[in-house]
Nucleic acid binder design. Structure first.
Lengths: 332, 332
DNA sequence: TTGTACGCGTTATCAT
DNA sequence: ATGATAACGCGTACAA
């Protein structure tokens, strides 16, 4: 491993000059600068990230913190999101250090310890819920942070997502315009803020049309395919008047689809089913799901971009919505 | 940020003693050891990973190098694999630093530079192909390394996968036993070593039955759903005698499935289609795919385990196969 | 058993 | 423009 010391020796200058040349300081003669750069290339010099981080008290590493991921996930969201962050990180010469929050195994290490031990430049969080213990930690933390799909009430913390409320309204307006008058809502985990936003979008369109929300039209699927299936098995037989179901996630929509098929309810003829997320499965199930497309890769890219601005102290809004799109397929 | 210096001050000992106590050195009085540990807890001390790595010339970080991943991947393999590595890493207090090899954008940084800059303890590689430029680098590299799904001809480099040859034979024997006599093979990317192994498994069962392999029964789908679709569209109409198709990947099998459906070929009645990998989609398509299940999470966990042993100089075989399973669904 | 002192590779401050 | 030198936090060889 060759260091600036070696270069300094060969170039017959001090290590300080080498450091300056390498970091593009103006206080170096163009001549010696070139000579040092040339030498660095010849010797295949690469700076030691540890040493640099140690003295600068900050590494060029983003922490990527993901919560609630288990093996056998039924979507590629984490993968896509990670790639988005990675793409931006690499464009600025940063790396990604992983941290998985396991609510069951309860990590011994907190995300704060994680960030400090590695002098992370900042962290990006994905999949967190408002009831996560980590969520609170962020508030008193001084570490730059951007949340994906979770609003940040604190000004120091950034946040990027789609406009879930508006997206839910788009879905509902689409259904209303297609003539549906009795629309049920399949809700997700209450502690996920997106659930609330999508639900409020549902309610607002109901209100707009002068329709009272009926509490037994609100189902709970817990963002799980199985729970959704069970909920629909119990609900559909008693409610033939329902012609449309808006699900807060594709996975739940897929569970609902199965329940409908088993009960002999034709989708979309007797029941329109709309999902949310546009996960990979959405276009492969039968019938293909009409759903709201979220570009997690883009979302995460923007999150990384925002994080970098925050770190560098550049002006940036601390909240950003990226576009979503209603994808109309055959389920409704 | 509190350091051993702070603890030393409060405990009225030298930093050397603190360091020893923290690292479980025997040369510390139990009394002072306890006092220091207690103090460390009180002060919420956490070691600075950078400083430690700098002096030890090795960090407690695994590099996770993944190649050929693009946004919108149609499987969760990377995600699952990453979680497997992560699980083991956390169990020994290690972290994961990401590195994505992008064959198109051709990274400026090599994986070796990446590893050295961060003094990585070792690296795990997934998705590499034998024609990858990185593959050669591994040979002269001194960095501990374990490959997933890619055999290592070098003794210093570890490797873990399933027995692809045996798995292919299992599939073929299953088909033969069900009475199939004319079986086509849909091959993947030639540079992926798994392709070759699966193909050889196919050939060996053919030979075992005294059947000559026919070159026009070997199709090429390039591990792509679209290419597989195109290949089958051209192949099926001219070969009604074919009753079974063994695909080197599920994604290609799904493409084949679509081609068959569009051509009015009933699966599995007229054509049995077998996949490989058991990706998430396999159980969601119609008909659900019969395929070989690979536990990528487990594979990666074992890879991390092997890597750690190599790093620690513990005895370990440098090659390991984990179990696979033929999952019989409805496609064949 | 404990303390002193050095070195890891780098950046940064102060002279020159 | 350049050089000497002090940090950064930690591990460890050597001395006591």
């Amino acid at each position: 491993m060759i260091s600036i010391k070696d270069i300094a020796l060969k170039a017959d200058v001090s290590i300080a000059t080498v450091s300056r040349a390498l970091n593009g300081s103006p206080n170096v003669t163009p001549h010696t600068r070139d000579r040092i750069l040339q030498l660095a290339k010849e010797l295949d010099y690469h700076p030691n990230a540890m040493a640099r981080s140690l003295v600068q008290k900050s590494s060029r590493i983003f922490g990527y913190i993901v919560s609630g991921i288990k093996k056998g996930a039924k979507h590629t969201i984490v993968q896509d999101s990670l790639m988005g962050v990675y793409d931006y990180a690499r464009s600025i010469g940063y790396e990604i250090l992983m941290f998985v929050v396991d609510s069951e195994k309860q990590n011994t290490k907190s995300y704060l310890d994680f960030a400090r031990e590695h002098s992370l430049a900042g962290v990006i969080m994905q999949g967190l819920r408002t009831d996560d213990a980590y969520y609170k930690d962020i508030i008193d933390s001084q570490i730059p942070c951007v949340l994906i799909d979770l609003p940040a009430d604190c000004t120091r913390v950034g946040s990027v997502s789609i406009d879930n409320h508006a997206a839910a309204r788009t879905v509902m307006q689409y259904l209303v315009q297609k003539g549906h008058r009795h629309i049920a809502f399949l809700s997700g985990v209450d502690e996920a803020s997106v659930t609330t936003l999508r639900f409020q979008g549902y309610l607002s369109v109901l209100a707009e049309n002068g329709w009272e929300p009926k509490s037994d039209y609100i189902l709970h699927g817990n963002f799980s395919e199985e729970d959704a299936y069970a909920a629909l098995r119990g609900f559909l037989p008693d409610h033939p008047e329902i012609t449309a179901l808006f699900c807060a996630s594709d996975l739940m929509a897929i569970g609902a689809l199965r329940a409908a098929r088993e009960l002999g309810v034709k989708v979309p003829q007797q029941l329109a089913i709309i999902g949310f997320d546009d996960i990979l499965l959405a276009s492969y199930v039968d019938p293909p799901l009409t759903t709201v497309h979220q570009d997690f890769s883009r979302m995460s890219y923007e999150a990384a971009k925002m994080l970098y601005k925050i770190i560098k102290g550049q002006a940036t809004p601390h909240s950003k919505n990226i576009p979503y799109e209603l994808i109309i397929r055959q389920s409704g």
